[in-house]
Design a protein around this nucleic acid. Structure first.
Lengths: 135, 135
DNA sequence: CACCTAACCGACTTATTAAGTAGGAATTAG
DNA sequence: CTAATTCCTACTTAATAAGTCGGTTAGGTG
């Protein structure tokens, strides 16, 4: 299970926003506290904003903040933005005896999706070691 | 959840061996029936052999066969060989509030490992839509 | 208005990994 | 000997990830 740096950065940045007191948080601050390359982060935040996940404000005392309460933003929400559409990878329909392998990928993908859709940014800032609701 | 072509090829090849009647199966046959680039497959089979997962025989009527019964080779066995050691990816210990994110990756990795360790080649050749034992 | 801060933007470069190829050498059956 | 088939290293190419650059635009403050 591979998770790109970009995805991790996005999640960490979002978490940072979720944990911050109300009001704009400048990218610079996030970059420093999460140790993320500044320019790269700009890039990512821009993408999150375009997707409507966060809002922004320019100028002095500007920055970013979550568009919705942290309880209503799931990890999957963030991931889908930065990784793009699932793009239905082609492990559907292997030849002959290998056919059933595809079912295994489905199972895995399904579980992953379920989990990431259940966990919100609020869960993370609170404490992710505590499991998410109803499993 | 990304699965490399190499990994998929390895699994499909192994499945092919599991499904074949006893005796050596030439690489060429696997390449054709699973539609895998021949040279690349050679490469992969070599790796599986070196890891002791399959045996081989050269010369006419040579080929490959499983080193152990299909019931005793899990998907994880095959995957670990071709993907190399897990290499403990560095999503351990994020700064500050993002720390708990690591727990999520752990959960996912754990589940994935569990599932892949439960499913054997025999399950695949039999029918993977039927779930593996005790979940 | 001047000036500073910080977001905005597309294109570009570099590093890493994946995917596949090449060219043979070594074995073994017949 | 010959043909089949594995064995082996190294190489090339394609794709993706990661990060950089050079600015532009908007907003607040004195």
């Amino acid at each position: 299970m591979r998770i790109s740096a970009r995805t991790q950065y996005a999640l960490r940045a979002a978490t940072e926003l979720a944990a911050a007191p109300p009001g704009p948080v400048p990218a610079e601050k996030i970059a420093v506290s999460q140790n993320i390359p500044r320019r790269f982060l700009d890039n990512i935040l821009l993408q999150l904003r375009r997707a409507g996940l966060i809002h922004s404000q320019r100028g002095p005392d500007g920055g970013y903040w979550l568009a919705r309460p942290a309880e209503e933003i799931t990890l999957a929400d963030v991931i889908m933005v930065v990784e793009g559409s699932p793009e239905h990878s082609r492990h559907g329909g292997y030849p002959g005896v290998a056919g059933p392998l595809a079912d295994v990928w489905s199972l895995l993908r399904e579980h992953e999706e379920t989990l990431l859709t259940e966990i919100t940014l609020a869960h993370i800032t609170k404490d992710a070691s505590r499991r998410p609701p109803r499993r």
